[in-house]
Design a protein around this nucleic acid. Structure first.
Length: 580
RNA sequence: GGUCCUGUGGUGCAGUUUGGAGUGCACGCCGCCCUGUCAAGGCGGAGGCCGCGGGUUCAAAUCCCGUCAGGACCGCCA
């Protein structure tokens, strides 16, 4: 049907007879000669219909998005009429025949790079938006990333294994999507939040090295970086520790970066969770931003100013930030309060070590000088201080850190491993710690004694053998060394307050499996949507998903979610309760 | 569950602060003209429940209340 892709034609194709198929991306009708921009998967080329050419179709009747087949000859454009903005801009196709393959209604959204349409319209007409250069580029980039990840793990001896979508619900973790069983009315399958337990069973089953590009589903509220369903590069290795996993996954991700950008992949740094919280206020620091959090607790240890008499007093020094106006500062204060801070204190650093601040009069000279010294602040800088509980202070400053920083160029990639996470995060109502990752995460060997003997809040100091991959401030994935020793597993479950009968009920099959010779194993999962979004320069994963859902979880194109008819309900043994 | 932002011809916006006739810009669409454009150009035209409902007012796109939809964030996401 065609000999070439429109977007592939170059000066070297001049004088070739070609047949092209595609959509009309634009038309310029001069009354005599008509120019058509013909778009296909390869790009756009200009087709010229000369007034005396008997092409079989009146070119003046052609409209946007008509589907055409064009036969013609590639020729150089006349002197002075080349288009350097177009890859094919040195040439054009002189049409000999133009065949109308299909007409098209005027598109309700613009199909170009230039204008942003309302997103609900873009989703309702996703099949039109997919024709845009942006989505074409993003989906093709995504395919290259998937391919690179697969190739890397294949090379490293991993076996791709599919795991089921219909599994048993395990009440830990996120809210499950459930599927009612027709054969077993009143019983439900759950769609996997991840193949976590299944891949551990594959390790017991001797698969040794497993991977899968797996669909995961979690019924939690959506965000710019979260959809109900998302893809993970899921992997697990036997007879391996965290360093082995980080080496394998690091290679795969770096291969994906090369495939996506064509540039050399950056090295992957490593820092501990503790260090990340202290320096960057988050467990997913954006390391493109150099600004770091400064601890001024020492300087203010004896302060008379009540607002600074707190567990932690930390801050940021924004170079040149003193020029920020009151409106901007008020907005930062509101932002800090919204994030849970009691307040935010700003200080403009003036010449002569003076501080221009609403609270300056509450501080002694030594305290003022000590603050300036601690931050290494220069005149013209802006200091932002938060006081309160350590966790809150860190997270508030961590959020402000990236918001007050100067914007960074999207192509810069900063990858890092975060290691030594806490095994637990907080205590539940019964005083038991809550698993930060999942109950099969191995504790840090150095903290084994603590795990054995500590109780209550003291247990929160226990670290785990888990690790996250962070890219430009986004959590790109996480993994851990798993517990394979039944005694240790029993201890962790006991600490979590999950007694044996409940443990058996929830994941007895895994505990059984571990009784038959579980190899030491460790694994990881990479969030592919997020990885692709960053590599594509997008700040929203919907832009790298062919058919995403809105923030409320609807699909304006298909109308999902929708009702089902009474017969389907009856077959499933379900009835719908109307909530008032 | 909560906070904030947005909703105006097919599309993107301005107009809302300070109420006074659906007023404006650009794109698209339709017709006519036009032989080298690439955001083609010129002339003319059509196209509106100002998201929806209620309230205040002599008068509401504009003020108030509610609601729906979309987005960003908090909670949530082992």
């Amino acid at each position: 049907m065609r000999t070439d892709r429109a977007g592939d034609l170059r000066a070297g194709d001049v004088d070739r007879a070609v047949a092209l198929c595609g959509w009309v991306a634009g038309r310029r009708d001069h009354g005599g000669v008509v120019f058509l921009d013909l778009r296909d998967a390869g790009g756009v080329v200009q087709v010229v219909v000369d007034p005396d050419a008997a092409t079989g179709l009146d070119a003046h009747t052609i409209r946007a998005e008509y589907v055409l087949r064009v036969e013609g000859t590639v020729r150089h454009r006349p002197e002075g009429s080349t288009n350097p903005d177009l890859a094919t801009g040195a040439v054009e196709v002189a049409a000999r025949t133009v065949e109308l393959l299909n007409r098209a209604e005027p598109p309700p959204i613009p199909i170009g790079e230039r204008v942003e349409a309302d997103e609900v319209l873009r989703l309702r007409y996703r099949y039109l938006d997919l024709r845009s250069e942006r989505l074409q580029r993003n989906l093709r980039l995504r395919a290259r990333v998937n391919h690179a990840l697969r190739a890397s793990l294949d090379e490293q001896g991993f076996v791709e294994v599919e795991t089921p979508m219909l599994i048993a619900s395990t009440p830990e973790g996120a809210r499950d999507f459930v599927v009612p069983s027709r054969r077993h009315p009143g019983s439900f399958y759950a769609l996997p939040q991840s193949p976590q337990l299944l891949k551990q069973l594959l390790m017991v089953g001797g698969i040794d090295r497993y991977y899968q590009i797996a669909r995961c589903l979690r019924d939690e509220d959506l965000r710019a970086d979260r959809q109900f369903e998302f893809m993970q590069l899921d992997a697990e290795m036997s007879f391996a520790d965290g360093d082995d996993v980080m080496a394998v996954i690091g290679d795969a991700v770096r291969a994906a970066v090369v495939a996506a950008t064509g540039r050399e992949a950056p090295p992957i740094g490593r820092l501990t969770w503790q260090e990340a919280r202290d320096r960057f206020g988050t467990d997913k620091p954006d390391l493109r931003v150099l600004l770091e959090i400064v601890d001024v607790h020492e300087v203010l240890a004896a302060t008379a100013f009540r607002a600074f008499q707190a567990e932690a007093v930390r801050g940021l020094c924004v170079p040149g930030g003193a020029e920020l106006g009151r409106g901007r500062l008020d907005a930062l204060i509101e932002r800090a309060k919204g994030l849970g801070a009691a307040g935010l204190v700003w200080m403009r650093v003036r010449d002569g070590a003076e501080l221009d601040s609403p609270v300056a009069r509450h501080l002694t000279d030594d305290e003022r000088l000590g603050i300036i010294d601690a931050f290494g602040a220069q005149p013209g800088d802006l200091l932002l201080l938060v006081a309160g509980a350590l966790g809150t202070v860190a997270s508030v400053l961590g959020a402000l850190r990236v918001e007050v920083a100067h914007p960074v160029d999207p192509p810069d990639l900063a990858l890092a491993w975060l290691v030594d996470f806490p095994l637990f995060e907080g205590l539940d109502d019964d005083g038991h710690p809550i698993a930060a990752h999942h109950p099969f995460t191995a504790p840090h060997p150095a903290d084994r004694d603590l795990l054995e003997h500590a109780t209550g809040a003291d247990l929160l100091a226990v670290r785990s053998r888990s690790y996250d991959l962070v890219l430009n401030g986004w959590e790109m994935g996480s993994g851990s060394v798993r517990i394979h020793d039944p005694d240790l597993q029993a201890r962790v479950l006991a600490v979590l307050g999950i007694d044996e009968s409940r443990a058996r009920e929830r994941f007895g099959f895994l505990l059984d499996a571990f009784g038959y010779g579980a190899p030491p194993h460790a694994g990881f999962a990479v969030g592919i949507d997020r990885l692709v979004a960053i590599l594509a320069g997008e700040d929203n994963i919907r832009e790298v998903i062919a058919f995403p859902k809105t923030q409320s979880g609807t699909d304006p194109l298909t109308g999902a979610p929708s009702g089902i008819d009474a017969r389907q309900l009856r077959d499933l043994g379900l009835s719908v309760i109307r909530r008032t």
